[in-house]
Simulated scan of single mutants.
Amino acid sequence: MILSIHSSRFAGLLLLGFILLLISVVPADKAAAQELSGEEQSGEVTVATASKDTAAYWITQLSHEHYLRREKASQKIKQLGPAVIPDLVTAMNQGDLEVLERSVAVISEFAISLEPADDGNAWITLKNMAENSVGRRALAAKAAMDEVAESRSERAEGLLVAAGLFIGDGDFSVAASQRLLPLVEVGDGWNGDVKVLRWLEWAGGIGHVRISGKAIQGGVLRNVARMPDLTAIAIVNSDAAVDDEVFSSLSDMERIESLDIRYVNLSEQQGEIISRLPLRTSLTLMGTNITSAAVEKIRSRLPGLEIQFRQGGFLGVSCYPEERECRVNMVYPNTAAADAGLMFRDIIIGAGENEISDFSTLQKTINKYQAGDEIEIRFLRGGKLLKAKVTLRRLEEN
């Protein structure tokens, strides 16, 4: 009986001690959470009262021992806006890995969430880090740049398409040879908003652009020239005179592989500007009314450049270039050749007053005529001589 009483008292004391222990022990993360909650209520830092001192304080908390404190520090720094970027760069120089990763994440968030022109140099900061740093710092910056570029590219496509630009696969002529290629087209469907064209800088992976009609403006070309992977430009179909700025806007590009100008009247001064562009492979001048003397001046300035100078008439066939006759291998739809009934494997032997021996001589002959000119085409089909009157058209892409 006595032993039982003692055992009960001992058990009770043990139970009481255990309860007191539970009450006195608070997990470290819960204490940190209570501490952060108290700071929220006291309004220690708000966007309205943000200053350099508060930015410096929260940057020091990026490496705090408690996770919740580090998370709150990241959020507070984001609220302060891109003005804190220089302070973050300074903090990253201290070498703490946690500070590095969180600082890069914050800068990346600024670059993604804000307009490129108003990101407080977030993108430039990441680029400088990637190019001028080594190790984890460079890797973190490059990874952030990839994320920002992907986000901006997706946003760019949506905004540009909404503004009436075409982005996708389409027929594109390089030196009057058409191919189906990924391209951007700024034409009559464009809503006229030049500001939205800043997003062309983020239209990556597209090397070809066509500007036509009312879109042939200096402001448009300045933005087109910022496309990161641009190699070929076509400027086509303007009934009105265009400003010199249309061409001078391209002078800041590092290189232009091909430039096609079709049915745009060019002045001698504009020919001078074109002769100083960084052209590398080909220049096509078709229906531009530029003088032969101006074209020869371009040739002298850009030796080795393939220059096709055409009056503007377009027949609409291609022939096997390796053959010693002009045997048709393609008749393009909605062209003079299609209207005339030319067919695959017809052999063209004459155009106008000229005899045709191969595709090269056909091209040279047609190049002498303007769109709207009527000429006679003579061809063989199954050994039989046929003739057709054709009215040459403009070269138009679908």
Rank of each mutant, 00 (worst) to 15 (best):
Gly95Ala: 14
Ala388Asn: 02
Ser318Asn: 01
Arg70Ile: 11
Gln34Pro: 00
Ser63Asn: 13
Ala31Cys: 05
Val84Gln: 08
Tyr67Ser: 10
Ser249Gln: 02
Ile290Gln: 02
Gly187Lys: 11
Phe247Cys: 00
Ile2Gly: 11
Ile19Cys: 09
Arg198Val: 09
Leu159Lys: 10
Glu323Cys: 01
Arg226Glu: 07
Ile375Leu: 07
His66Arg: 12
Ile59Leu: 09
Ser173Leu: 11
Leu197Gly: 03
Asp87Asn: 15
Asn398Tyr: 08
Ile298Asp: 03
Ser51Phe: 09
Ala340Asp: 08
Ser7Pro: 00
Ser251Thr: 02
Trp190Ala: 05
Ala48Tyr: 15
Asn265Arg: 09
Arg226Met: 06
Leu100Trp: 09
Asn354Ile: 11
Glu322Gly: 00
Val174Leu: 15
Glu376Trp: 08
Val104Asn: 08
Ile23Gly: 07
Asp244Glu: 07
Ile59Glu: 10
Asp239Ile: 02
Leu277Gln: 01
Gly95Glu: 15
Gly120Asn: 13
Ala337Asp: 13
Ala225Gln: 06
Leu197Lys: 03
Asn329Cys: 05
Val47Cys: 01
Ala293His: 11
Ser212Tyr: 03
Phe359Trp: 03
Ala241His: 00
Ala156Gln: 08
Ala336His: 11
Ala337Thr: 12
Val264Pro: 00
Glu268Gln: 11
Arg276Tyr: 00
Ala111Asp: 10
Phe166Gln: 13
Val246Ile: 01
Gly120Trp: 14
Val236Ala: 05
Phe10Gln: 04
Ile233His: 01
Val161Met: 10
Leu386Gln: 06
Asn354Pro: 06
Thr365Gly: 04
Gly219Arg: 01
Val47Thr: 06
Ser275Val: 02
Val328Ile: 10
Phe314Asn: 03
Ile167Asp: 15
Gly17Asp: 11
Asn354Lys: 15
Asp188Met: 12
Trp199Lys: 05
Arg136His: 12
Val99Asn: 07
Ile216Thr: 02
Val246His: 00
Ser292Ile: 03
Val390Ala: 05
Asp169Asn: 12
Arg381Asp: 09
Met253Pro: 00
Gly304Ser: 01
Pro278Thr: 12
Thr291Gly: 05
Gln270Trp: 07
Ser360Thr: 04
Ala55Gly: 12
Ala351Phe: 03
Val331Tyr: 06
Ile273Met: 02
Glu131Leu: 12
Leu385Tyr: 04
Gly38Ile: 09
Glu185His: 13
Leu68Asn: 06
Lys389Glu: 12
Leu305Lys: 02
Ser360Cys: 00
